[in-house]
């Protein structure tokens, strides 16, 4: 069964149709690339899954249960993690604290137990910190662990967002342009990280990216959007040959 199923989802902003009856499925442990020119609706689709935007029509199911009636703060707890294209970190907090906030959805201590610092709360806190430190090591962020997020380079902050998303131990991870601001070697390294996230942590990934070589290398399947419509879906090789896709890209930017 598909882990995420998008069915005829449409989103309108006033007169603009940002998504027009988009449908596709993601199978468990797949890496699916979501591509399309700027303004195609990729981020809008992420925001529908995160419940930050309301879909005007259609349905989305996660693990078979409907998602569009779930409040936004419950999405992470269901097992869906995400990063943001333009960064949505907590600037005054250190990198480690940012990552620890990512574990909010899977930790339990409340106002009273936190204030009393009950033994189980202290254990939970220790586990949360240790897990955050593991992730910082995994993403080579240990050197900046105690640095506030504000003031770090964009490319570093992109990795912090990835670590923060992983801190919730999601099953499905949505990455919105994770290679933004990276140089060639860094993009290569990111490709390896994305594959390790799938192979070692067993996650399913939906990847929005403009670096075509990265998308084509890591994806099992690619979905192409243009002006809010799905114009192609298939293996990287199939999609690259698709005349509609070639037209969409030649019409805007040479990718």
């Amino acid at each position: 069964m598909a882990i995420l199923s998008v069915q005829d989802v449409s989103v309108r902003f006033g007169g603009i149709i940002a998504l027009d009856q988009v449908s596709f499925d993601i199978e468990p442990r797949q890496i699916v690339g979501l591509i399309g020119p700027n303004g195609a609706g990729k981020t809008t689709l992420f925001n529908c899954v995160s419940r930050l935007y309301e879909a005007s029509a259609g349905a989305i199911t996660f693990d078979g249960s409907p998602l569009l009636a779930v409040p936004p703060h419950r999405i992470a707890g269901l097992g869906i993690g995400r990063t943001f294209q333009n960064l949505a970190l907590f600037p005054t907090q250190t990198v480690r604290q940012n990552v620890m906030i990512g574990a909010h959805s899977r930790t339990r201590s409340d106002f009273l137990s936190n204030a009393l610092k009950l033994p189980w709360v202290a254990r939970e806190e220790d586990e949360c910190r240790a897990h955050a430190d593991d992730l910082l090591r995994f993403l080579d962020l240990r050197a900046v662990a105690d640095h506030p997020a504000a003031g770090l380079p964009f490319a570093t902050l992109k990795r912090v967002e990835l670590a923060r998303a992983l801190a919730s131990r999601p099953r499905l991870l949505l990455l919105d342009e994770p290679a933004g601001g990276l140089n060639h070697e860094e993009v290569e390294a990111l490709g390896a990280i994305i594959r390790r996230i799938r192979d070692e942590l067993g996650l399913t990934l939906l990847l929005v990216e403009h670096h075509m070589s990265l998308v084509m290398q890591v994806s099992d399947k690619v979905v192409v959007l243009d002006f809010g419509r799905k114009i192609a879906e298939g293996s990287p090789a199939e999609v690259q040959r698709d005349p509609e896709v070639i037209k969409a890209y030649l019409g805007t930017e040479a990718a």
Binding site: I75, A76, A88, F90, T92, S109, F111, A115, C128
Partner: peptide, 25 residues
Amino acid sequence: NLLRGRVGRAIVAIRDNHIAAEAMG
């Protein structure tokens, strides 16, 4: 205890970026 633990981090997260805080649960 409250401000240095999970709840305190969430309280500050709301101040710093409430949309991201919601996305973190």
